[in-house]
Design a protein around this nucleic acid. Structure first.
Length: 219
DNA sequence: ACATTAAGTGATT
DNA sequence: AATCACTTAATGT
């Protein structure tokens, strides 16, 4: 009885973003197999080196995917949001590899976890699942290329502005609650530099600064 | 009132 | 663009 209830709740949540992606039979099976989970903002969902045994289907929220080097320097790769999954972790799963990224919860996140076995099984069983995984892999690839491009071809001013506008989209809010130091960490630079560039953006009227907050005025 | 943390700035490399 | 060294401002106890 309780099980049925859980299943129905999961199914209901799935409808919002995944009913167009998956057919009914698959949707039903996901609801049956998947485990609903909530992650609070600030938590680490996955750490570099961790072994994956399941992958998340994001229902709501956002997860920041970070790459870190041996010297603890880090750089933001991309965000996962509703409707996303991480196909990178999916391939990791199948090969029983360790995660090459860290996932930090940027915004309270709801997701459904799918165990590896099912991921593989469904790949054969459902065309819509196959499509979803391939699309997801492609999207991760595009986002990584974007990350490389901005790193290689953009100066810090533009990278910073892109960072801010991306974040506005992810958070669905023009008022960002973020410290200069956190931005510096994400872009792998120093706080002083970020503070100066932000001041410049404020002077040009694109943003408004406050303690622990930044308001983006025009996109 | 004092300590702590975040942000602003000039000078130097 | 990074670092240092310092100031100023906001917030917590």
């Amino acid at each position: 009885m309780k099980m049925e209830n859980d299943k129905d709740q999961i199914l209901e949540k799935l409808q919002d973003y995944y009913s167009v992606v998956f057919d009914d039979e698959l949707l039903n099976e996901i609801a049956e197999i998947g485990v609903y989970r909530r992650y609070d903002k600030g938590r680490t969902m996955i750490e570099i080196g961790d072994e994956l045994s399941e992958i998340p289907l994001i229902l709501d929220g956002a997860v920041k995917i970070i790459r870190e080097d041996s010297k603890k320097d880090e750089i933001l790769m991309y965000f996962l949001e509703r409707g996303d999954t991480c196909a990178i972790s999916f391939v990791n799963c199948i090969n029983k590899n360790k995660s090459i990224f860290r996932g930090e919860v940027e915004k309270d996140t709801e997701c459904i976890m799918i165990p590896v076995r099912k991921i593989e099984e469904w790949l054969i069983k459902y065309r819509s699942w196959r499509q979803f995984i391939v699309d997801s892999y492609h999207n991760r690839m595009l986002e990584m290329v974007e990350a490389i491009d901005s790193l290689a071809f953009m100066n810090l001013d533009d990278r910073l502005y892109k960072y801010l506008t991306d974040k506005v989209k992810i958070m669905r809010n023009f008022n960002l609650h973020v410290k200069h130091q956190e931005i510096a960490d994400d872009l792998n630079t120093s706080r002083v530099v970020i503070s100066r560039l932000l001041k410049k953006l404020e002077r040009s009227g694109k943003i408004k600064l406050g303690r622990n907050k930044i308001k983006i005025i025009d996109l």
